[in-house]
Simulated assay, not measured.
Amino acid sequence: MAFVALGLAVVAGACAGTRTAASPVPAAPVPAAPAAGGGAAPETPPPLRWPVKTMPHVDLWLHAFAVLSEDSATVPLYRRGYRDSITVVKNQRNLLTALDANRATLEKGLQRTGYLNAQFLPFAFANWEEMRATIEQFLQLSGDPRRAPTREAAMRVQMLASVFTTAADREWLRLFLAGVQDEAARFFTGEHHRLVRERAGTITAVDSLWQQVYRTKFERFLNNTSQRQGDLVLSLPIGGEGRTGPGFTGRAMVAVTWPARAGDAAQVLYVLAHEVTGNLVGPAVADNTTPAEQRAGTADRFVATGQVQAGAVLLARVAPELVVGYQRYYLTQAGMRVSASSSEAETVAMFDKRFALPAVIRSALVRQIDIVLSGI
């Protein structure tokens, strides 16, 4: 989901370089400098342009939204079955947090407004403590950036005010924040630590696959779409519908699925392809739909479907060996059963039927991706 909260890019840019990113995959140690007379010390390798990271506060925030959301999209906003799996674990432990206790009220607010932009807010912060303090300040100031003590604080208050615009919105946020804090203290932090330990092998597999094999294959597309630098964030609640926006580092952040098994590391690349092509889809749909289709919501459906198709087109150009796996993954994300014995042709036919697009829109996407890759 390539969707950016209003003001988030400005705040991220203003704060870039002032904080340390959370939980990057460790780099190889730099050799010690030789003793005097032993020659020049080796140069420190440049930082990775697209490091693989984990960010617990991103997971916490998205987890809270996931357990409150009725997810009926073709490609769910969160990992398929995530909400139900969390409910099962909590029931087994006879655990009820403030987030659960206030679910009905919080869900009603979500149904009324969606707060879609709020899902991207954690990208602007290095950790939960910083994010919580900013939200608390926003609430204390009643959402008025003019009352903020510093320019940076005013920018952050304005960022939150662009999402939570009314007193009712701020009251919803106050209840939500209390629920998230209780959820973290009584359930999520411990559960997250456990899952991170279990999936340590997946982190290593993803990092190896990305940095040693596929980053260079994606590089031309990323460079030519102004995505030269970024952070690839593994996120437990995320499925096929990732999240993309500007981060506190001043670079793009792409939150992608975090597979349970090292053998499924390629799923990260599938969601990455889906996300980094996102900005091309809206214009292709807008240019090839009528005002009536746009008013009726048909164009919005084409955007969601087009993003899935665009990821497949990109992979067909830069990593064709991943295309069938990508198609199987997104068919599964859409709730379809895909037999392991299905041929490539059968998979392609199922994929094109499930994610059908008007030929003119698909042709526009193919043409635009080819233009990007050609460097024009």
Rank of each mutant, 00 (worst) to 15 (best):
T204V: 12
R215K: 05
T225F: 12
R261E: 08
A178G: 10
R228Y: 07
Q212K: 14
A304V: 08
G250R: 12
V281G: 06
F187W: 11
V254P: 01
S208H: 09
M253F: 13
T298F: 02
P291K: 00
E191F: 08
V180T: 12
L177E: 04
T204G: 03
R215E: 12
Q309D: 10
G278A: 01
L173A: 08
T289D: 00
R174D: 02
A260N: 11
L209P: 07
D231Q: 11
T290I: 04
V196K: 05
D207G: 01
R251K: 10
T298K: 01
T189G: 05
D264A: 15
A260C: 10
R170Y: 06
T249W: 02
D231I: 13
E183Q: 05
D231Y: 15
R243W: 04
A184K: 02
R215P: 05
Y214Q: 01
A292P: 08
R228S: 15
Y214G: 07
P283A: 08
A205W: 10
H193N: 09
Q227S: 13
S226E: 12
V268S: 15
V213E: 13
G263H: 03
R174M: 01
A200Y: 02
G245I: 02
G242I: 00
A262L: 07
L173F: 08
E183P: 01
Q181P: 01
F188C: 06
L269N: 04
N223S: 09
G282L: 11
A262Y: 03
R170G: 09
V254S: 12
L272P: 11
L222A: 14
W258P: 01
F248Y: 04
R197P: 04
T289Y: 00
Q307W: 01
Q211I: 06
M253R: 15
G250H: 13
P259T: 09
W172H: 15
D287A: 14
E219T: 07
